[in-house]
Amino acid sequence: MDPLIIADRSFTSRLMVGTGKFSSNTAMVDAMEHSGSEIVTVALRRVDIDNPQDSLLTHIDRKRFLLLPNTSGARDADEAVRLARMARAAGCDPWVKLEVTPDPYYLLPDPIETLKAAEILVKEGFTVLPYMPADPVLAKRLEEVGTATVMPLGAPIGTNRGLRTRDLIAIIIEQANIPVVVDAGLGAPSHAAEAMEMGADAVLVNTALADTPDPAGMARAFRKGVEAGREAYLAGLGQQRDKAEASSPLTGFLRND
C-alpha cells in the first residue's frame, strides 16, 4: 500500500491502535502485533504509590512502535498542555494525541480548548494530532495553526457504533491538506473499511480490539478492513445510481421481440 506520511514521517500501516482496557498486557501486545500498526497510543496517569504497577513501557518495543501519548483526562487546554509536556519529559518523541474532553458522559472533545491547546503545543514544537468533533470548520482552523493531522470522531469513544458522522467526515476529507485520521467509535472492520473507502488517511481503534475475547483475531480483521478500504479508495469506487444498469449484455436473448 502507499505510505502514510505524517509530519515527514512515513508509515506502512494506516491503522493506529490504542492500548487501553485490554484484559492483560499479553492481550495488548498480541493485538498490537497482529494489527500491523506502527503507532500506538498511551495515556499518562498518577502512579499508585501504595501499589506500584509495572510500567507499560516494559511491554512495548519502542523501536517498532511509535509511542503516541494522549492527553486523556484533560478538561481544558492548560491540563492538556501540562500532560503533553510530561509525556515529552518521559523521553517520548514530541508527538501528542491532543484530547480535551470535559464532558464525562459522552467524552466529546471541547473544540475551543482543543484549538487553544493545539496552538500552544505546535509553537512548542510538538507534532499535534488532535481528537476533534467532526466539524469541517474546526478541522480547517486546526490545520491553520499547524496540527499534523485532524482526528474527527466517528462516534463517541468506546461506543463501537461506527461512522455516525459520515457526511461531515466526507467534507473534512475533501477540504483537508493534512492526513485525516478517523478516531473513536469504530467498532467493526467494516466501519474502518468504510472510512478508508471515503478517503480517510488512517483510523485509530482501541475498544473494538480490547472488547473482544480474541483481540489478536480482531486486530487482523481490522488490518484487512483498513487495507481493503484503502485499496478500494485508490482504485476508485463505482458511481452510485438510482436505477439498475445491467452487467450482462442486453442483446442475444432467447426470444424474438
Partner: peptide, 10 residues
C-alpha cells in the same frame, strides 16, 4: 509532587 507514568490508553 506529581509522580506520573504511562498506562494503557486510546
Amino acid at each position: 509532587l506529581e509522580l506520573i507514568q504511562f498506562v494503557g490508553g486510546g
